[in-house]
């Protein structure tokens, strides 16, 4: 049963959402897909970006979404952000809130920083990635894309391959996929699979070929190149040999959809042939990202309007 309305000030992660809330967002995103016109849902609202890590794709996607909804957008370059100058994140938020900012889109390198801040501000916080914790809008756009391409989520077999240890995309996807009834396998070398991840309701594999057998979709995670210096991978070519998604590997799973949160390291976690091939939905993910973020912002705006904020 779908939720009747959205009842949250913030979107911090998918862990705390119910299946019907997630479906509510996906349905709202669908309604935005029917035309490319602009709206005035967020007219008069100001959306500020606080990113302590560089990002092109996520940030542009949020910015496009906010502008299409009529919001004023306040951007901060990473270098100019006071986050890096030691001013606390809460102080920064309170200051900008005092200037009339209604929404903060936040990215931070530390897991869990947003949770204690949310109750301390009247503004709405949208998590655009906190450490290795959650990246809810990325998972929502992955779910949206899966649902569009496969017609459903329930019962799908989804493989997430790569650096699970450091991946917020993996965690948000696991929460979303499990809530909507998919079976999830996480796959990667032992060093990149955190101990105890099974407790999130996933199976663990260290063999990509075996994992791909009968899979409906594979979500390929970006491998940060510095993992080699940290001795977490033996070499990038070893990694590609064991866990790189190649056309040869994929040829045994013709129905398997390929997702990647970007930006890609071609020849490290995915071959160009697969990235640009017929099973890839990678560019559609990017388009869908705008729809999902429009949905999130407009649902929260509904909540704010009802609360008179």
């Amino acid at each position: 049963m779908a939720a009747k309305h959205w009842d949250r000030k913030d979107l911090l992660g998918l862990e705390s959402l119910s299946a019907s809330e997630i479906e509510f967002i996906l349905d709202a995103a669908k309604s935005f897909s029917k035309s490319s016109k602009t709206f005035d849902t967020l007219k008069g609202s100001t959306v500020a970006f606080l990113f302590s890590e560089p990002s092109t794709r996520t940030r542009s996607s949020f910015e496009v979404a906010a502008r299409r909804l009529g919001a004023d957008v306040l951007g901060f370059s990473v270098a100019a952000s006071s986050l890096l100058k030691g001013e606390s994140l809460l102080d920064t938020i309170k200051n900008l809130e005092a200037m009339g900012v209604d929404y903060f889109i936040l990215r931070h390198e530390q897991s869990g920083v947003l949770e204690p801040l949310a109750p301390l501000t009247r503004a709405s916080l949208v998590n655009a990635g906190d450490g290795a914790h959650e990246h809810p809008t990325q998972a929502l756009l992955d779910l949206y894309t899966l649902r569009e391409k496969k017609g459903r989520i329930k019962g799908l077999r989804v493989v997430i391959v790569g650096d699970i240890l450091h991946s917020r995309v993996a965690r948000s996807n696991i929460h979303g996929l499990r809530k909507l009834g998919a079976k999830v396998t996480v796959c990667g070398p032992s060093a990149l699979i955190p101990a105890g991840i099974e407790a999130m309701g996933v199976s663990v594999s260290h063999d990509l070929d075996e994992s791909l057998r009968g899979a409906d979709a594979v979500n390929v995670l970006r491998l940060q190149l510095e993992r080699q210096n940290q001795n977490l991978v033996t070499s990038l070519s070893d990694y590609f040999g064991g866990f790189g998604l190649t056309a040869e590997r994929l040829s045994r799973s013709p129905g398997c959809l390929v997702l990647h949160p970007g930006p890609m390291n071609r020849g490290v976690e995915i071959s160009s042939e697969v990235a640009d091939g017929p099973q890839s939905a990678i560019l559609e993910q990017v388009s869908n990202g705008v729809l999902v973020r429009m949905a999130v912002l407009s649902l929260i705006q509904g909540w704010r309007t009802r609360r008179g904020r």
């Binding site: 897991s111 914790h133 959650e134 965690r171 955190p194 101990a195 105890g196 099974e198």
Partner: peptide, 12 residues
């Protein structure tokens, strides 16, 4: 290190 750390995305 364990299930709690894994779910929270914290190094254990």
């Amino acid at each position: 290190e364990g299930a709690r750390a894994a779910a929270k995305g914290l190094r254990g």
